[in-house]
Design a protein around this nucleic acid. Sequence first.
DNA 1: GAATATTGTGAAAGATTTGTGAAGTATTGT
DNA 2: ACAATACTTCACAAATCTTTCACAATATTC
Lengths: 226, 226
Amino acid sequence: MCLEKKTVLIVDDEEDMRFLVSMYLENSGFACLQAKDGEEALQIIRREQVDLILLDIMMPKMDGFTLCARIREQSDVPVLFLTARGDEWDKVKGLKLGGDDYIVKPFSPGELIARIEAVMRRVYQEKHRNGGLSFGPLCIDEKGRKVTVDGETIVLTLKEFDLLLFLAKHHGQVFSRDDLLVRVWGYDYTGNARTVDTHIKTLRIKLKQGSHFIKTVWGIGYKFEV
Amino acid sequence: MCLEKKTVLIVDDEEDMRFLVSMYLENSGFACLQAKDGEEALQIIRREQVDLILLDIMMPKMDGFTLCARIREQSDVPVLFLTARGDEWDKVKGLKLGGDDYIVKPFSPGELIARIEAVMRRVYQEKHRNGGLSFGPLCIDEKGRKVTVDGETIVLTLKEFDLLLFLAKHHGQVFSRDDLLVRVWGYDYTGNARTVDTHIKTLRIKLKQGSHFIKTVWGIGYKFEV
DNA sequence: GAATATTGTGAAAGATTTGTGAAGTATTGT
DNA sequence: ACAATACTTCACAAATCTTTCACAATATTC
């Protein structure tokens, strides 16, 4: 539910920095993941649920701007930039990369936490309502395991519901079939990945007008897009 | 909702914490009682009317789990756990002690109030009618432990009634058989989950037209749906 | 535009879950 | 102690869901 620990991914090439920030955050009740470069970050985003990304702008290999753009291709997760000098922020703004906020180094622990919580609040506000998700005509009641489209109840099977719920909860993010098998079916599931296709198919049929949210990402997998 | 002040009992060994939470709540229109340990809490529950309990899990003497179990022996008052780390919730769930929700520390005042009000709404919504629940032809008189369908009295056994009452009170929500065993039979019940099926069966037979509210949710359990 | 890879789809086999009757166990009342 | 009632367990049939597979449709690459 909404009050689980939030997970923050820290992307920075300096190990000390990652470690320090990680300490701050964990003391404040966040779970932390770390990535030392863009590649690692992108992989983690695919595999794990990440609620916010702390992104250093200055990094070798792939810089923060580029990485943010790549992240945005597959996910709506909020991004908070870390920048060493204030003037770099102009670049961020100029490039309009969809970062949600920024912090200038060096920052105090309190400032960092406050910023993160502000972003979280802003982005996840809707989710905090009643545990139910709503996208246009499509409503998903998690506790009641009930789905409606234009007020009409749609009867879904166990896996159909779990799959839809997962995609909707992580809307904006692309998942491969294998990702979905792990996250929805369970890490120990060993079966044909095409099973996902079949469930997507029945979901699309059953959801009718609500099915347009489920997009095929050719060569990758599926995503729920608002 | 009714405009009486609701009373919240805060159970925490740290005085500062009790005081702080108490402030939040009183500013939001709740009346507060405080207990520093399990013994004190149990005494207060016996003496005073308490509408909700905020319970810290980590406490010396009697921990929150144990206390919740003791409370459940004598009262249905909703319990909201406070936990310092997210992973403790696994324990709560694992032990299935019948807490109604949980909050991870540190939490914002707004979050706390929202959670409390959500639980209050759910739990007390129905009670405020007149102590009885009514769904179409089906009436459930909690205090009199009497059920009627189309005015005709239906004789239910203890477990049948408790099961029906629990489902009806939490209508719209799906429960697994294990959830029901914990919440209706008690946290320390160790028996076959299929027992629930048998009681559902007899309920369906006895309730006749009133039985349509009880839905099977394939692969999960049962729910009461209006 | 042909070859290749990926996704959509219908149908059937396979697996799981639920409904149910009956038998066994526990509890209560006399 | 006995009977009556309630509760639990069990086994099997029935219902339902999940997975697989083959082939069609579509997108991408060369």
